[in-house]
Design a binder for these strands. Structure first.
Length: 249
DNA sequence: AAGAGAACCAACCGCCCTAAG
DNA sequence: ACTTAGGGCGGTTGGTTCTCT
């Protein structure tokens, strides 16, 4: 069965929004909220489809949107997060208050992508390498694979997987923290959107935000430190939101 | 000053996921 | 269990503005 389009094309206006339409949408949402997007245009008196209204609101009219040029810090954050998360624009936008996924996506395609490509090219071109350039050694430890969540696996238990993955890391990385036994269970009960939780790490209660991200072909727990504007580069990366990194970093 | 090409960005499209019936 | 609608997301398009010659 083919899904019907989100709106009848006939009689629905398309293209750039006029200031009058913006005003109507803002007034309506500020009085009644958006509720059902599909029903909104009719109730508000707009000749637009609901999807168009939602996009206009989300990307342009929302009061918390920050307009204007991106700061250097924001650009660096986008580059780091893109390295970490790939094209998950909404996840990246979630870490840049006031910026929309569309805006970030445009920024990436028009400015940052070229810049990153150029920088990568320079870094790998022999002529541009400094004389004391040393080729980085490949990782000497296995990239740990995220064990299946207990809710997705019926054949193994969380406990055995937890033990295995923890011992793998402790054996491979001297400075990998001692995780409390409920760590992975706690991780798996969080979603992928960067939920903040308290964990016992290295024997210390630490507030952390976790993300799962596919890197090097394997899914990893990894993170980004918004305070230091730096990606943690372990097999498992963990970062705090409290502004201070745990000692093991 | 004018035309061409490049860059920018708002908006649209179509797919996917999820909740409700 | 299945179907369907609603909403979210990433990719793409096309109109506008800018820059260069």
């Amino acid at each position: 069965m083919v899904r019907a389009p989100c709106c009848e094309k006939m009689g629905v206006k398309r293209g750039p929004w006029t200031p009058e339409e913006d005003k109507i949408l803002i007034n309506y949402i500020s009085h009644y909220g958006h509720g059902n997007w599909r029903a909104l245009p009719k109730q508000a008196g707009l000749l637009r489809c609901g999807k168009s209204c939602r996009l206009r609101w989300a990307n342009y009219l929302r009061p918390d949107i920050k307009r204007g040029n991106f700061s250097k810090e924001e650009e660096e954050t986008i580059i780091k997060l893109h390295e970490l998360l790939g094209n998950r624009w909404s996840a990246i936008a979630a870490r840049l208050p006031g910026r929309t996924d569309n805006e970030i996506k445009n920024m990436w395609h028009t400015h940052l992508k070229k810049r990153v490509l150029k920088e990568n090219h320079q870094a790998t071109t022999l002529e541009t390498k400094p004389q004391n350039y040393v080729k980085p050694e490949p990782l000497d430890y296995p990239i740990p694979v995220r064990p299946q969540s207990p809710q997705h696996s019926s054949s193994t238990t969380a406990t055995s997987e937890t033990t295995a993955i923890t011992s793998t890391n402790n054996g491979a990385l001297d400075n990998f923290p001692n995780l409390d036994e409920n760590f992975w269970e706690n991780v798996f009960s969080a979603d992928d959107s960067g939920e903040t939780r308290n964990f016992l790490v290295g024997g210390r209660e630490t507030q952390m935000e976790l993300q799962f991200s596919p890197l090097h072909g394997a899914e990893q727990v990894c993170g980004y430190n918004p305070v230091m504007h730096d990606c943690m580069d372990f097999g498992y990366n963990i970062f705090t939101t409290a502004g201070e990194l745990p000692e093991f970093f």
